[in-house]
Amino acid sequence: MIRKKYSKILVANRGEIACRIIKTAHKMGISCVSVYSDADANSVHVKQADESRHIGPSPAYLSYLNIEKICEVAVETGAEAVHPGYGFLAENPDFPRALEKHNIDFIGPSAETIEVTANKITAKEEARKAGVNVVPGYMGKIEDAAHAAIVAEEIGFPVMLKAASGGGGKGMRIVYSKKEIELAFTSATNEAEKSFKDGSIFIEKYIELPRHIEIQIIADKYGNIVCLGERECSVQRNNQKIIEETPSPFISEEAKNIETSSYTQEKRIL
């Protein structure tokens, strides 16, 4: 399989995320096109890119979530690929499909992979089928506040209302009693709709004082897989991570050896 080397890519994101992508691309000799909304006209990522294009008003759903406009800019600037960063359109399967129509590559998973993993409801279902432990909850979309109240009582308070799409703490509400459900459902749904263009909400048991430890793996379509080790993300405020530490001080050396040997074995099989 021939590996492509791009000469120009479009970065479909903003702020620090876009800056990191641009910095790395420049090190690789790749020129970058940045996009920006009204609010970001003077942002650093706009100045760091080789070219910049305005894509709409400040609200994300009118700019950074506007698939048609971003595709239009990619075509106009001659970008060979689009890097979505994370958030915004990174987990929307319609984005790589739209780019494919213009023969522009998407630097990320296939639309089929995104379809399964980007939605937390389908991702949890696939994980459960694979024998992975998941947080107890309702494996489906919550229709309205009344439905949410019924499900929450079946699960047992406290519960977490969570947006099925996106991440970063958007569209998440902790609920400790039935009287809080209606307001929490409405605010979570509205925030999810504005942030991800998808107001779908599901419910799972809220785990108090958990350890949030991520094991990050990068893989490409050429069979290359790299494990970046674990990252401790448990220190939070208002459901937002405020400190990330790697390696995690809570993982024993024995557990790390098991993790490493399992990864090595998997890589040999691949």
Rank of each mutant, 00 (worst) to 15 (best):
A145S: 14
G78K: 04
I67W: 01
G137W: 02
H26V: 05
Q240I: 12
D144R: 03
P109M: 08
R20Y: 12
A60F: 04
R237N: 08
C19R: 04
S110P: 04
I258H: 10
E112W: 10
P249C: 04
K120G: 00
P59E: 13
S200K: 08
N133H: 11
F185W: 08
I243P: 01
I150E: 14
D40V: 13
I104K: 09
I203G: 02
S252R: 02
K129T: 11
P109E: 11
K197R: 15
V46L: 11
S31K: 15
L65G: 01
V116T: 13
L270M: 13
I251E: 13
T189K: 15
V235W: 05
E100D: 12
I215A: 06
H147A: 08
E180H: 03
K8S: 00
E16K: 02
H212R: 01
V226K: 12
K120H: 03
V116C: 05
H26S: 10
G229W: 12
I70D: 10
G229T: 13
S234V: 09
T24G: 00
G167M: 12
I107Y: 03
Q48H: 11
P84E: 05
I121E: 08
G131K: 02
A145T: 02
V135Y: 03
K241C: 02
C32I: 10
F95I: 12
E125H: 07
K5T: 14
V226R: 11
A74L: 11
D144Q: 00
S252D: 07
A98K: 08
V159S: 03
E254H: 11
L270H: 12
R268E: 13
K179R: 05
M160A: 12
I218G: 01
F88P: 01
S187Y: 02
E244S: 09
T77I: 05
N239F: 06
N133F: 10
S63W: 09
A123Y: 09
